[in-house]
Amino acid sequence: MENSVWIKQARVEDVPQLAQLFNQYRMFYGQSSDLDGAATFLQERITHKESTAFIAYSSSEDRRGLGFVQLYPSFSSVSMQRLWILNDLFVTTEARNHSVGRQLMDTAYRFALESGAKGLTLSTTNDNKTAQRLYESLGYERDEHFYTYELYFKG
């Protein structure tokens, strides 16, 4: 599978395929299936240039979605440089253990580098050891200096 993976930046016309993967990703994290909501959300992010997503396909001909990575733009005030938040990484069950996640991560890295960004930042759950091993094998370092705080609004 590794040699036949084809990765491309998602455009508006890719939203139906991306939404299928995004919906699976959300269900993986315990959300209810909402394919229409996923498509609307992604359409808005891509149309308004609020995110950049890359889709991994089985091949340029077959176009069976294997996974995706989604980046959101941010900035570092201290360094006055762009950052990318690697917010979402998902690989379908059948494509896992075939380096699809690593290839998507490499694509995100190249994109961030080419955009002149200072770097990439990401987070994962404490118990997602598979993702932690992947990130650490790619040179990501766990932050030992800052605590993360969150405030969510009900509604």
Rank of each mutant, 00 (worst) to 15 (best):
S4M: 06
V5R: 02
I7M: 02
I7C: 05
K8E: 13
A10E: 08
R11C: 09
E13P: 01
V15L: 04
P16T: 09
L18Q: 07
A19F: 02
A19L: 01
Q20W: 00
L21G: 01
F22C: 08
F22W: 10
N23G: 04
Y25D: 03
R26A: 09
F28G: 05
F28W: 08
Y29S: 01
Q31S: 12
S32H: 08
S32V: 03
S33F: 00
D36G: 07
A39C: 06
F41L: 14
Q43T: 15
E44S: 14
R45W: 06
I46V: 12
T47E: 11
K49G: 12
S51W: 01
T52E: 10
A53Y: 09
F54L: 00
A56Y: 07
S58Q: 12
S58G: 07
S60K: 15
S60L: 13
E61K: 13
D62I: 14
R64T: 12
G65F: 00
F68E: 06
F68N: 02
V69A: 14
L71I: 13
S76V: 04
S76Q: 00
S77E: 04
S79F: 13
R82I: 04
L83D: 00
L83G: 00
W84G: 02
I85M: 07
L86W: 03
N87G: 10
V91N: 05
T92R: 01
T93W: 08
E94V: 12
N97M: 06
N97R: 14
H98V: 00
S99F: 10
S99W: 11
V100S: 03
G101R: 06
L104F: 02
M105G: 02
M105L: 14
T107I: 03
Y109R: 08
R110L: 10
F111A: 02
A112Q: 02
A112F: 03
A112L: 07
L113M: 11
L113V: 12
E114P: 01
E114Q: 14
S115N: 11
L120D: 05
L120E: 01
L120W: 04
T124V: 03
N128T: 03
T130E: 11
T130F: 04
R133W: 00
Y135C: 03
Y135V: 01
E136V: 04
S137M: 01
R142W: 03
E144T: 15
E144H: 14
E144C: 13
T148H: 15
T148C: 13
Y149G: 05
E150V: 14
L151E: 11
L151A: 15
Y152V: 15
K154L: 07
